[in-house]
Write a protein that binds this DNA or RNA. Structure first.
Lengths: 212, 212
DNA sequence: GATTGCGTCACCAAATCTGGTGAGATTTTC
DNA sequence: GAAAATCTCACCAGATTTGGTGACGCAATC
């Protein structure tokens, strides 16, 4: 069975180019070609293509919004973002919306074809440069966990324990992960509760997640 | 000022190799060379090197734990994970722990040197293959945040109890707020855990907060 | 009219958590 | 060098949570 592909792209030249590429590839099949978000959301859900090639800058909205909508209705459909700029925030949001690939428009035909095939295999095709950008932004998000006011009174170790707590680990597991005794973990927990003015694990976790 | 670099690596051959590489590079300076996690956590905080090259498989613990500890004490120190395998879960955890790079041991000398320099510039050096893997796991995490399949199976009452749970209330309080017995609340909790595939209050709360 | 799902309650055992006391070893700070 | 902070561990008692079994009434569904 051929891979059915829909295109959402407002630029007629680029849309034609991709259309031709799809028609020329033996096991690819063009499902439909939309010029804006509105018609994409109207036609694609009924067609349920395997793949959607999605432009970000559409005349009547963002391809990221469209991606989120389509993925909600068709979770199995893979969306490949296809754009000119490698804007970090866009990439991040696109992945969050459920996109499975992020290609630049200057990519070669063979890259596009192989990326679609790889995407169907469960990979997340993108250039190394884009991948690095995403990781950087991911990295920064994690790093921002650093500072917060109420948590300031906690010692490094206590914060460490609290973070494990906030992942849902039971005491026993925290102890083994940090190679310390259960008693020690409990001591830390008691002090954490005291400092955060809470009386249970759940409250401590909620307080921690709040201040993030 | 030269870039001071500490090595944490249990394999003597590899440690020597990297040591030599650092000493041969003009603006690099070897800060210290630790053979296990314990000595790393003992010596590195005092030395405050610019960069730590960290092995994951240490005889007395994980380099990821060590990374988290070091980053907590020395937030400005950049940690480069240096390992044989490109295990997705390890990579993910390493980045979460605050690592800024992930290199394979089979990398060339010039790659290692340039990666360290790039890392000092704020980049997150890693091979394209590793980057893709991380994004895939990121993608899967995000994708699961989409809709709430598990939550849908909860009855209205169960969801109600779960929401109170997620505010940090203890069982007793939930019972009195809803004018039902503690036993009933516990029954609901048991069913909630079963449906959400969790085994503790904390996990249930986290799952609930995630899917929001 | 039987089945099924839901909400309620009870009893019970084992595991876990909360909270208290005390205390040795280190490191940091003054 | 003394004092304070941190991390570690132990022991203990009571509260809470987890998980299992069983059961009753009610409503909706079939």
């Amino acid at each position: 069975m051929p891979i059915s592909i829909a295109i959402v792209e407002d630029d007629a030249d680029i849309a034609d180019e991709i259309s031709k590429l799809i028609e020329e590839t033996p096991d690819f099949k063009l499902s439909c070609c939309c010029r804006n978000m509105h018609s994409a959301l109207e036609r694609i859900p009924a067609l349920a293509p395997d793949v959607v090639i999605m432009d970000i800058n559409l005349p009547d909205g963002s391809g990221i919004q469209a991606t989120a909508q389509i993925k909600r209705i068709l979770p199995k459909t893979e969306v490949m973002i296809f754009t000119i700029y490698e804007n970090t925030e866009d990439i991040y949001q696109a992945l969050e919306a459920g996109a499975s690939g992020y290609l630049l428009k200057r990519s070669s035909s063979s890259t596009i074809v192989s990326s679609i095939r790889n995407m169907m295999k469960g990979e997340v095709p993108m250039t190394a440069a884009i991948a690095r950008k995403v990781i950087q932004s991911f990295q920064r998000k994690e790093a921002s966990t650093q500072s917060n006011p109420a948590m300031a009174s906690l010692t490094p170790r206590e914060l460490d324990i609290l973070q494990l707590l906030a992942k849902g680990h039971p005491t026993k597991e925290i102890a083994s992960q940090r190679s310390i005794s259960v008693d020690t973990v409990n001591t830390h927990l008691r002090r954490i509760y005291e400092k955060l003015h809470v009386h249970s694990r759940a409250e401590a976790i909620l307080k921690y997640l709040d201040k993030k």
